[in-house]
Nucleic acid binder design. Structure first.
Lengths: 366, 366
DNA sequence: CTGTTAGCGCTTTCAC
DNA sequence: GTGAAAGCGCTAACAG
């Protein structure tokens, strides 16, 4: 590291080992710093020969623009903060990728922060992020500590809440109702003939999206007049593949007549199915399994897993686009009125729930 | 958004809707900006009552420190850039998490950039990153464009290459030989009695780590005197679950006598196994399958998948620790001499290769 | 099209 | 323990 370019010396002699600044470039190109700034921005207001001289000087000196300085002076940092529970969940990393794709086009840079599914951590991360003066902030979920809400509200920048549909949003929303997705999924299972349908979730902690999905389950069980509800809670969120395996065993012990189970996410559904294989419980014949999130694993699992897709990546793109619009509006001095984008979800029926049961038929439990 | 705190007015009247600065806090607390700066840093050089007055003023004004400004003046941005091929691969996101865990303790913030497995993209991302003046940069892999190497070399900051063991490192290395991991894995399979062992990879593109693993495979086949090598190349990296399924079918068509296959990553191994289930090919009886990376899915898959673990998260922690040390050294003015940490790998044998074949035994191919 | 003059908000450095 | 002055590297705003 720290090799220096061979011709590091300035036009002026001396100049030790410090990184070249715009002034150095200007001097070498025989123009003012301001012209260098313009040339580097590509705003066509610089004459081609001058432009060339400047780029040559940049080249020779190995100059790299300092955006921290630029940000201070222009009051535009070019940062957008994105907070997600965990990087290690492809639903969220897909969303981040969708956001980045869109922001990249406008040379905005994403600052990623992870909250570990904890509201307290989220509050702390928000505080850290705000010190970087992002021009906008995208958070996951619609539940936050009071102080977090205050911080976001006072920041004077556009805020987007995602992956949820809060009743009282802070600013903009790009999300969906987690409860509604599960209601629809459960309705599909019922349509397929399943009647004894359970739910696997994490112990109630901070995963409010999981909590909402469970609420959707209970509501749907009641609305559809299903037999009774059975909820298995295992582990603290995030619920992993391993939890799914443990939960399905407990489920079958607890409620042997169970015909189908909805898992709070595809990962636990996958774990449940693998455990069923191990124990020789045929999926979906003995037990149908469905998940949430349309993870890649679900499409290629054997059997493929019925799930709900919300298009994580595209959700990110939409949030990115809205953020861009909001930031532009902000720069113009006319903040965008709070917007609420409801992202449609799709129930994807696959092999893991492919057996059609009929309410009239009697069936043996293995 | 953009609600203002109720008591936004300064001690001085006027002052419209602009965010409060340190000077505002200073005025309200009746001290100088410098004292506010000290108080906020927690450097004990401020008298308790003064400290309290300042914190109270911060509170009342809703003041948030501006690190961009601080960075400009102190020349310490508190950023470390981390470049990975993709967020959507838990090996890499685990590494990032390990890095973050360590850097968080010193209030350093990670700037994540993704390169999409492309060296050209990497070069571009490096350029963007350097404009933010990170105090260190961690990249994935040991192969870069010449310009990328130059940029990193000239940046005057510590550089760490990970997930590889380059012959000519730029600066520090925290990695391992991809080839060696596969050599060991193949040796274990041979020890178990497998003789006809194939390799599934992506078409040769930019995934140099995948390429190295394949090289390890070929070398080991030769060194161990195995029957012959068979490499199936499918899709452009990153190789997904889906590719694994397609590849295993082609493999069995191409080389029906095959007994075992090593996949370039656990994801393709998983895809291969699921496809085997679909076709009724017993794993490991008909075909043993091994992967690389010790993804979560492998531990809970049925059958569980034999793989190589390099401890992605811990690798990240080690890189983080080294980076911290290097940055501290840099700030002191005594750059750390290039270091090369070789991360040990472990072959984890699981059910997907659990059948012991014996070279003497004749066996039917299904 | 280009240059000049002021800062951006903070921290360094040196006094007191 | 606290303050005053200076300036980090860049760009806004104006002048020419």
């Amino acid at each position: 590291m720290a090799e220096r370019p061979p011709d590091q010396r300035d036009t002026q002699p001396s100049s030790p080992r410090r990184a070249p600044t715009m002034a150095d470039v200007a001097r070498r190109a025989g123009v003012s710093a301001m012209t260098v700034s313009r040339a580097l921005k590509g705003k066509g207001t610089v004459t081609p020969p001058t432009q060339d001289r400047i780029l040559k000087a940049v080249q020779e000196l190995g100059y790299v623009l300092d955006k921290s300085a630029g940000a201070l002076s222009s009051k535009q940092t070019g940062f957008v903060s994105v907070l997600i529970p965990s990087l290690n969940n492809s639903n969220f990393s897909d969303t981040v990728q969708g956001i980045s794709e869109v922001l990249d086009t406008e040379a905005m840079q994403v600052l990623i922060g992870t909250t570990g599914y904890s509201r307290e951590r989220e509050e702390a991360v928000i505080e850290t992020m705000l010190q970087r003066r992002p021009e906008g902030i995208i958070v996951t979920g619609g539940k936050h500590t009071p102080r977090a809400r205050t911080l976001l509200g006072q920041a004077g920048i556009p805020v987007i809440e995602t992956w949820d549909m809060p009743a009282a949003p802070i600013d903009h929303v790009v999300g969906f109702s987690n409860a509604a997705t599960i209601e629809d999924l459960l309705a599909r299972l019922m349509f397929r003939g399943y009647r004894r349908i359970a739910f696997i979730e994490g112990e109630h902690g901070e995963d409010t999206r999981g909590h909402d999905r469970r609420a959707g389950y209970e509501r749907a069980v009641e609305a559809l007049g299903l037999e009774r509800s059975c909820v298995i809670s295992v582990g603290r969120p995030p619920i992993t593949i391993e939890h799914g395996g443990g939960a399905v065993v407990r489920l079958v012990e607890t409620w042997p007549e169970v015909e189908a189970v909805i898992c709070v996410s595809d990962l636990s559904a996958f774990g449940a199915i693998m455990e069923c294989h191990r124990r020789g419980w045929a999926v979906p014949e003995r037990l149908a399994v469905a998940g949430f999130g349309d993870f890649e694993v679900s499409r290629f699992c054997w059997p493929s897993i019925t799930t709900v897709s919300v298009g994580s990546r595209d959700l990110g793109r939409q949030a990115g686009r809205l953020m861009l619009e909001a930031i532009t509006a902000m720069r113009t001095g006319t903040p965008l009125a709070p917007r609420r984008l409801n992202i449609p979800h799709t129930v994807i029926e696959r092999d893991s729930t492919a057996v059609h049961r009929h309410p009239a038929a009697t069936h043996q439990v293995a």
